[in-house]
Write a protein that binds this DNA or RNA. Structure first.
Lengths: 250, 250
DNA sequence: CGTGTGATTGAAATGCTTCAATTATCGTGG
DNA sequence: CCACGATAATTGAAGCATTTCAATCACACG
């Protein structure tokens, strides 16, 4: 295991990015890039990438206000994107998976912060060289444009989620998101494994860790799920969970 | 005044798009295009545009699920972008102004609905021809990519806004947004003119029209503002309003 | 096998939602 | 120009969900 927060760096050829969709609302630049770009385009991008390794446990990748020097793609591991209010409050914008892209800047600075949730390997694309590439390759641009449009839709999904009044429905939506991802949901045993804390979920859903815990309890009482451990959840009534997620009373 | 909901169409040369930033969180594709594109690029775009005129009063521009045939830009007037839940609830994603772009599609269909707030003149860009243009012109693409990135940041702002617990702060943020736009805020008399209803604001802030009204009352009691009429608001303590908007206790 | 972090639960206070009634505003036609 | 009617806004009150502070419990890690 890594014993420092500083990432280890190597410039060897990174593995190709081949993973699927992002799983949760990710209001930041985030989407699978593997199935949007051709192998040739991926190779072009990989040519300017540097591989970085980070340990688990909230290792900072960048912070709000930092000078933006690179765009990142996740090769392995999980990353949390958040913004912080002046009062110290935190709002989690998304949980990112392998294949997801993040690090969009504004006026040369990052507008949010990124930390690891688990040990992670990232690909870093220096902005300067990336920009150079973009003006040369229209095809690459069109794909990135498509990606950005998709991210906007994803952000809209979370906006609608936060627009829902009660946490009961928001939590259901959150869980349903995860059930669509093989890395976290095992259909055979109906087992869901959550990689983040209750506080992370609370900050994501716009509520507190306590309310999240209480609503897990409520879903359990209703027979929708069972908490094997806090992070290992067994889904007992997927149909009902989906009803709740889509806003229908339950 | 228009006497039908169908827009009148003409193919004469549309006026150039020259307005400033969008004013409110606009989770949909929306941003001033005038100051991002060169006159030549604007001319290229204008060449494939059709001008549409819509009356006021919630005239539908398109609805969720409609086949997406065009991208829209506002020449004059105001447009509301929203999504609807299966239970009939509505979540307003943004209020758009002249210069704003909207109508991003997913799988050939619109993912939200757009209606007028006031009489509006729109420029319609047929998707087919627009796509053609994009693969030919790398410069245009890079600008649209920048625009998309900006919209993502805007969506993030609204996410943070909705992440705030109480409506008091959310409403303050909402009002501060408007104070930055000359079309709605007159600094001389500290007068703010809101073009939408309390229900629109409620659906935007994730609450009800009643709670919005109550919080206007509360801001008035606190001496922050005065309601001349429901839609004409005089700001009496801008500093305090900004403190509230940034999350600091009031 | 301790120890610290995360999760859960309790209880009081607050804020929000909902239903309902009243009042105000604005566009329209007399 | 004023009156009218429809829509919007405000306010009241009861019920409910969430927040906050606090204490306890469970688990993972060393």
């Amino acid at each position: 295991m890594n014993d420092t927060v500083r990432p280890s760096t190597d410039t060897t050829k990174p593995r190709p990015m081949v993973r699927a969709r992002p799983f949760c609302a990710a209001a930041d630049g985030s989407q699978a890039i593997g199935n949007l770009l051709t192998p040739a385009e991926q190779a072009t991008l990989a040519g300017i990438a540097t591989t970085l390794r980070y340990p688990a446990g909230d290792a900072p990748i960048y912070a709000e206000g930092d000078e933006a020097r690179a765009l990142f793609a996740i090769d392995s591991g999980l990353v949390r994107i958040a913004r912080h209010g002046v009062d110290g409050s935190r709002h989690v914008l998304g949980f990112l998976r392998p294949g997801d892209l993040f690090g969009l800047a504004e006026d040369g600075r990052y507008v949010n912060s990124a930390e690891t949730l688990t040990p992670a390997t990232l690909l870093s694309f220096p902005l300067q060289r990336l920009t150079q590439l973009l003006v040369e390759d229209a095809r690459l641009q069109l794909h990135l444009l498509t990606k950005a449009a998709h991210d906007l839709r994803t952000a809209q999904r979370q906006l609608v989620l936060l627009g829902q009044q009660d946490i009961h429905h928001r939590l259901a939506s959150f869980l349903i998101d995860f059930c669509g991802h093989p890395d976290f949901y095992e259909p055979a045993g109906h087992m869901l494994t959550l990689p983040m804390t209750r506080l992370d979920i609370g900050d994501y859903l716009g509520t507190s860790a306590e309310t999240v815990a209480r609503n897990f309890g409520r879903l359990e009482q209703e027979g929708v799920l069972t908490r094997i451990t806090p992070k290992r959840i067994q889904i007992r009534d997927m149909a009902q969970l989906m009803r709740l997620a889509s806003g229908r009373a339950g």
